[in-house]
C-alpha cells in the first residue's frame, strides 16, 4: 500500500450513509456486480465515471449506518482513499479492515472542488491540494491500523498468521 496517495477528487456532502454506498440490492448480486450500485440512490451513474485511484472527499459523519461492506464497494469502484470532515466509527473499522485508507479533517470540504488533483500523505498526516496549492494537516491513523491497511486488510493478516482455512466452506 502506498503511503502517499494522489488522485482526482470526488466531493460528497454530509451524512453519506452505508445504505447509499451499498444498497440492499448488492447483498444478493455476484461480488463483482456490487460496486455498480454504489451511491445508486443519491448519485446514480457515479461508479461509471470514477477512474481507478480517485479519492472521495466528504462532509460530516461519513459512513453512518450498518456493518454492510460499504468500503468494499468504494474499493470496487476504484476509490483509493477517503477523507471526510468526520467519519463514523464502524465505517472506519470496515474501511481499514478491507485496506481502504480513511482519514478525517474538519476543514476538508472547504479546500477541495470536485475534479481537483489532491494528495494524502498517510504517514505525515498531510493533505495537499495540488490544483490550488492549499494544504492542511490531519491526524494520522494509528500505526497498527496502518499496518492493516498496508497488508491489504485484516483477512490478509489472519491468513498469514495461519488462523484461516484455505479451503472454502
Amino acid at each position: 500500500m502506498k503511503r502517499v496517495i494522489t488522485g482526482r477528487a470526488w466531493v460528497f456532502g454530509d451524512n453519506i450513509n452505508t445504505d447509499l454506498m451499498y444498497p440492499h440490492i448488492c447483498y444478493t448480486l455476484p461480488e463483482g456486480e456490487r460496486p455498480k450500485y454504489t451511491m445508486w440512490a443519491n448519485r446514480p451513474g457515479w461508479p461509471e465515471i470514477v477512474s481507478r485511484g480517485d479519492i472521495l472527499v466528504a462532509g460530516k459523519n461519513f459512513g453512518l449506518g450498518s456493518s454492510r461492506p460499504a468500503a468494499s464497494n468504494l474499493l470496487g469502484v476504484g476509490i483509493s482513499a477517503v477523507i471526510a470532515e468526520s467519519l463514523n466509527g464502524l465505517f472506519l473499522r470496515n474501511a481499514v479492515n478491507v485496506g481502504l485508507p480513511a482519514v478525517s479533517s474538519q476543514v476538508i470540504r472547504s479546500m477541495v472542488t470536485e475534479g481537483d488533483l489532491i494528495e494524502i500523505d498517510l504517514t505525515e498526516g498531510n493533505f495537499r491540494n495540488l490544483s490550488t496549492g492549499g494544504s492542511v494537516a490531519f491526524r494520522s491513523l494509528p500505526e497498527f491500523l496502518m499496518d492493516v491497511i498496508d497488508a491489504g486488510g485484516i483477512i490478509e493478516i489472519l491468513k498469514r498468521s495461519g488462523c484461516l482455512d484455505t479451503e472454502a466452506l
Partner: peptide
C-alpha cells in the same frame, strides 16, 4: 458496537479486538 464481518473473523480466531 458493530464490527463488520472481516473483523469478526479476527475476533472468532483471537477473542480480541480494539
Amino acid at each position: 458496537r458493530g464490527l463488520g464481518t472481516p473483523e469478526l473473523l479476527q475476533v472468532i480466531c483471537t477473542g480480541r479486538t480494539w
